[in-house]
């Protein structure tokens, strides 16, 4: 009796594994195909029926991306824009999340909800004009600043949720121990909120890195970020598929790696953020 029950359970879990595998297969197939495209010479990419694993790997596709397209510069631009926008967002967003949580002013976070609902383009029109007026176009600053539209709400939103769950008694104990409000924040609230900061950092990083619409308006030849650079490759039809797929992979690889290594934090952050988001 008992052994039959155990056998049924293993069968069940194997069945579930199979179902899950089928669900995941479009993801696996897509990325496999992406890798395959990026590693094939043009002949193989144009073959019918399509070839998944070619006889000769076209590593040169990756080389071409960097040689012909100034990709190193764009990579560096992406790092600067995303890095600065994310760090700035942490510097101003973490204290703000703390303040809002402690002021019990969650309602003021509605502004962040509305910001999330606002189409990115409606930020772009006025800020584009302002940047032009300040003659900042041509530098990375317009993109850094406008990426704050993405990163600050993410950080504030997640940190509000996080600070709401950290016990206020700890901060009361600290103030009785003689800490000023700033010391309470820096020595007690902040260290305890470290996991939340990591989550908001990762998510802000990813969504800023992936952003496309701001760059396509604000970037020129020298200030492109990776998503814009890849899009520009696409619009030149003469480029063959191999280097294109390689470029796409280069753009998204950092994010995918981060997703893999920080899966737990990302899931936690998205779930919390999303559930609060309603």
């Amino acid at each position: 009796m008992a052994s039959r029950l155990i056998r049924r359970k293993t069968l069940d879990s194997l069945g579930l594994f199979f179902v899950a595998f089928v669900m995941v297969s479009p993801v696996i197939l897509f990325f496999l195909w992406m890798i395959s495209l990026s590693l094939k010479y043009e002949i193989d990419n144009g073959a019918y029926p399509p070839i998944l694993i070619p006889e000769n790997f076209a590593w040169s596709n990756y080389l071409k991306v960097f040689e012909e397209n100034n990709f190193l510069l764009y990579f560096w631009n992406s790092i600067l824009v995303t890095g600065t926008a994310t760090l700035l967002a942490l510097v101003i967003g973490v204290p703000a999340g703390y303040g809002i949580a402690r002021l019990k002013a969650e309602k003021s976070a509605v502004i962040i909800m509305i910001a999330r609902m606002t189409p990115g383009l409606s930020f772009l029109i006025p800020l584009f004009l302002v940047f032009q007026w300040l003659s900042l176009i041509g530098t990375l600053w317009p993109q850094i600043i406008i990426h704050l539209v993405v990163t600050v709400p993410i950080v504030v939103w997640i940190m509000i949720g996080y600070f709401e769950t950290t016990p206020i008694e700890l901060e009361e104990a600290a103030s009785i121990d003689g800490a000023t409000p700033w010391q309470v924040f820096r020595l007690v609230a902040l260290p305890i909120a470290k996991p939340g900061i990591v989550v908001s950092f990762i998510l802000a990083l990813i969504f800023s890195w992936n952003n496309f619409v701001f760059g396509i308006v604000l970037a020129n030849r020298e200030t492109r970020t990776l998503p814009v650079a890849v899009y520009n490759m696409l619009s030149f039809e003469q480029v063959s598929w191999g280097p294109l797929a390689a470029a796409a992979l280069i753009v998204t690889l950092p994010v995918l790696l981060l997703t893999m290594f920080a899966q737990r934090q990302i899931v936690a952050g998205l779930t919390a953020g999303a559930v609060k988001g309603g």
Binding site: P167, E169, L170, E172, S175, I176, D177, V188, I192
Partner: peptide, 20 residues
Amino acid sequence: IPARDRDIAMVFQNYALYPH
């Protein structure tokens, strides 16, 4: 006068120990 200047100590119901 704020708590920090009152020269008092307090033991909380859930201890409020700093976890870090």
